[in-house]
Design a binder for these strands. Structure first.
Lengths: 255, 255
DNA sequence: ACTCTTGTTCCCCTACAGCGAACGTGTTTC
DNA sequence: GAAACACGTTCGCTGTAGGGGAACAAGAGT
């Protein structure tokens, strides 16, 4: 039915569903014909999926175009709230952003990828909203590297096997040996550094949040390379960052 | 395959998928066996769905138990951000909560139901997070009634046909004629009132946000019945509420 | 060492997901 | 203003893959 060849054992209809969602997002809403053409499916098949989704709130038909529905928002809020580190880190991240005047982030790992769970920015601005809720490879940002550095070795290997080390900029670490060496340095130093490895002109430092001997996520401070590159600035930010992660760990300990 | 009898034309596998998500949420994470038993499906079927979901980030396997995945958070953030009223109303809602010291809400309608898109609370507190991202019937809260009052008559009828007028408390309006009369009053008065119709001891007032001649959502102020019941308080809150909706409408007009 | 319970894999079978065509409705075009 | 078009929706048919059951592996508890 679906075009999956040797996936192991997955449900093709589910994959079609996910593909429709993806298309709805990419096209910012679309009609049945457009979706069917884009996915190489029959109009009737797409229609049946959409009807099912609408019935459950996962899609809406607004003025003749289908859109991603707010049931996803409901499920998404639940998925985020499930992380107690989110509740423990919210205030510390806000404080960190206010103190430093830079952007501050909470990052967690799931299925070997990094997700920005929460963000705050000293001088307001909407740019935070564009990042929260997006995936990254763990190796391209400071928070992700901080997490990797404190994950069991075999899990790190599994993650690298599954997702590889694709480059985002010319500074991205793309070599396993190099990455492993850097993870050692991160463990010694206590925090990770990102020098334009994800986005040009953006530097960041990130530190892990640990609880019960396992990494639960990471906090990061990010800002313009020009400002963060100075050594004394890095030391100051690192100091404040580690204080913030301490706060989160305390919050986690006391629920 | 799925047990849907006379649904019209929906995809059974999709419904199974949604049912699994629902179960994962209700049980706060679960194993294959538990899910299969709860849904009356074979373990192998549930497993196949879960594998597909994990592959796409819609589920995670943490320590042997499956959970709702953060891909839902990604899609949910997108679904929320799609509403420009969200961006237009965020600050006004915060201001409204700060000014009044009560809880302030942004509510939108989708598929005939009300969704709390954003909330703010004067004196902090996490209670807001439990409400944001949840559905309500339109007739049980002030924001929903304000929306209903400004929807075309035929659409109101369709919504009532589809969702009915179930009671949440003994104060809920459950009669169509009564509701229609109240919608008239709301249009005259400019705002809607909720007197413990959704939750005992909680009163609220809500006003519509309109743009291009159509309702785009509603703001509401809610608080303890004891405080809000006084007539002078209602007048004061209504004044501030309507100022806030004006602000949102201005923000919408200027993008 | 034994049992019990779990997640996972394998394979068969038939229900249904996907298709194509037909239908209805609204919009554009000349 | 009617004809051509494009769209969403509905309707049966058909072959494939979704679901079931059993077997397997891997821990956990006794």
């Amino acid at each position: 039915m679906a075009r999956n060849g040797t996936d192991g054992a997955t449900v093709g209809s589910d994959e079609t569903l996910f593909a429709i969602i993806e298309q709805l997002r990419e096209r910012d809403g679309a009609g049945v014909t457009e979706l069917a053409a884009g996915l190489g499916l029959a109009k009737s098949s797409v229609h049946k999926h959409l009807r099912t989704m609408v019935e459950h709130g996962y899609a809406v038909n607004r003025d003749g175009t289908y859109h991603v529905g707010l049931e996803f928002f409901r499920a998404g809020e639940y998925a985020r709230d499930r992380y107690d580190i989110y509740h423990a880190a919210k205030d510390p991240v806000d404080d960190l952003a206010a103190e430093t005047g830079e952007m501050a982030w909470l990052i967690v790992e799931e299925n070997g990828r990094a997700m920005y769970l929460y963000g705050s920015r000293g001088d307001a601005g909407v740019s935070v909203e564009a990042i929260v809720g997006t995936w990254r490879h763990l190796h391209v940002n400071s928070g992700g590297k901080a997490i990797l550095a404190h994950l069991p070795d075999d899990e790190v290997e599994r993650i690298l096997d599954a997702h590889g080390l694709p480059a985002r900029t010319e500074n991205t670490v793309t070599d396993r040996g190099e990455l492993r060496a850097e993870l050692d340095r991160i463990r010694e130093r206590g925090y990770a550094v990102n020098r334009s490895e994800d986005l040009h002109g953006i530097h960041a430092i990130g530190a892990p949040v640990r609880h019960d001997g396992a990494v639960r996520g990471a906090l990061a401070v990010a800002g313009a390379a020009r400002r963060l590159a100075r050594d004394d600035r890095e030391a100051d930010l690192a100091e404040r960052l580690l204080t913030a992660t301490d706060d989160v760990e305390v919050n986690l300990a006391y629920q």
